[in-house]
Computed example of a mutant assay.
Amino acid sequence: MQTEAPRISDEDALRFKDLFDRMVQNVGVAILGKQEPIRLALTCLLSGGHLLLEDYPGTGKTSLAKAIAQIVEGRSGRIQFTPDLLPADVTGVYVYDQEKRSFEFLPGPIFNEIVLADEINRASPKTQSALLQVMEEAKVTVDGETHELQSPFMVIATQNPVEHAGTYPLPEAQLDRFAVRMSIGYPPDAEEARMLAEQTTQPPLDQLQPVAGHAELREAIEAARRVHVEESVSRYVVALLRHTRDNTRLALGASPRSGIALLRLAKARAITEGRGFVLPEDVQALAPPVLAHRLILAPESRATGVTAAGVVSEALTATPAPV
C-alpha cells in the first residue's frame, strides 16, 4: 500500500505564499496592470505545468515569459519557432568527437529550467511533436537514448490567434500538454502610459533580478503536491469533466489529463493563498483556463456561436459545488 505524503503545514504554506507574492511583485514591475494574468502564470509554474500564451501581437506575451525566466534563478532558453526548425534544433543531437572517437550528445535549448517557445505554431507538426514527450515526462529520447531533465521544468509557449499565414495549428494532443492557456490583454490606460514612458527610457525587464532560488522553487512545487484535497472536491472535478463529455455541443470533452492538471493547479493556488487545503473556489477559478482549450466544439456549435469557455461556464453553473 502506498504511503500518503505528509500534508503541508500552515507555516510552510505561509512561507511559500510569501515567496509567491515576491515573485508576483517582481514580474509586475515589468508587466504593468496585469496582476491576475501574472498570478495565473506563476501558479502554473508552481503546479509543475506548462503555459500557452495566446494573444495579439505586442500585448506582452514574450515579455511575460522573459520576466518569469529572469526572476527564477537557473537556466532559461528561448526557441524561435520557424517553418525550417528541425526537431534536433529543439532536443539536441549526437555529434562525432574525432579525438574521443565516439559520439557525444549536445543538448538542445529544451534542456533548461524555463523554456520560451516563441510563436510555437510557426513550426511544422514534426517539430512541434518533439515537445510531446518532454512536456509530459520531462525526458528527451534521441537516437534511442533517453535523457532526463531536472526539476523545475516549464515550457512557456506563445502564439498569435489571428495570424494564420505560414502557421500550423497545434493538434489536440499538443494542446492537451499545456496545463493553462491564457491571454494577457491590453493594459489599463494609466498603466499603458506609464509603460510607454518606461520602455522608451530604461526597460524594467532588463533590471529584473532572481527572487526564487532553484532549490526553493523546487521545494515549493513539491509542497504544492502535498496540499490536501477532500474527496468531495475530487468528485467535484470529476463531475465537471463528465459534464463536458456529456455535452452534445462538444465533439470532444475534457480528458482525464485535464482533471489532473486542474487539481494540480488548484493545489498550487491554495498554497499561493497560504492554505494547506483546496477549496471548491480554487477549482472554479481555474477551470476556464485549464479546460477550455482542451474541448473540441461540434461543427454545428461553431455556426451558432458557442464557445468552449462558455461550455465550461455552463458546467460550473450546472454542477453543484461541495460545501
Rank of each mutant, 00 (worst) to 15 (best):
P320H: 03
M182C: 04
F277M: 05
P299F: 13
P171E: 11
L316D: 08
R7K: 13
R15M: 14
E11C: 03
I71R: 00
A261M: 05
E230Q: 10
R257V: 11
A268L: 06
S183D: 12
Q174F: 06
L262P: 02
K126H: 13
T167I: 05
T62I: 11
G274F: 04
G274S: 05
L86P: 02
V229Q: 02
R75I: 13
A212M: 09
R39D: 10
L297C: 11
Q35D: 15
R225Y: 06
L46R: 00
A261G: 12
D97N: 12
A69W: 01
T272D: 05
I184G: 01
L295K: 03
T307L: 06
A308I: 02
T59H: 08
C44N: 14
I271M: 15
D21L: 12
A212S: 13
G33A: 09
L295W: 01
I156A: 02
Q70A: 14
S232M: 03
Q128S: 05
G49Y: 00
P169V: 07
F153P: 00
R39C: 09
S63E: 12
S301I: 10
I120G: 00
T82R: 03
M182K: 00
F81D: 01
E219I: 02
D189Q: 08
V237E: 00
R275P: 06
L14K: 13
K100W: 07
R245Y: 12
A321R: 08
Q159R: 10
I221Y: 00
D97K: 07
T146R: 04
A309D: 07
Q70G: 06
E281S: 14
S183A: 13
E222N: 14
E119A: 07
A309W: 03
E104R: 09
K126F: 14
L295Y: 03
S234W: 13
K61C: 05
L250A: 08
T3P: 14
Q199M: 09
T3L: 08
P210M: 12
S102L: 06
N112H: 13
Q80W: 05
S151I: 07
A298E: 14
E163I: 10
F153R: 02
A165D: 15
P289M: 00
G305Q: 10
A69P: 02
S255T: 15
S63N: 05
L208D: 01
A285Q: 15
L116P: 00
R15E: 14
E119Y: 04
L252C: 11
M23C: 15
P161M: 07
S255N: 15
V29M: 14
Q199F: 06
Q2P: 15
E73V: 06
T248C: 08
R177N: 09
R245C: 10
K17R: 15
K267D: 00
I260D: 09
S63Y: 08
I71K: 01
G253E: 01
I114F: 02
D10Q: 10
H147T: 08
N121P: 07
R15C: 10
R264S: 12
P152V: 04
T127M: 06
T158N: 11
A193R: 15
E11A: 12
M195Y: 07
A285H: 11
K17F: 06
E273V: 05
S9V: 08
Y168E: 10
T319H: 00
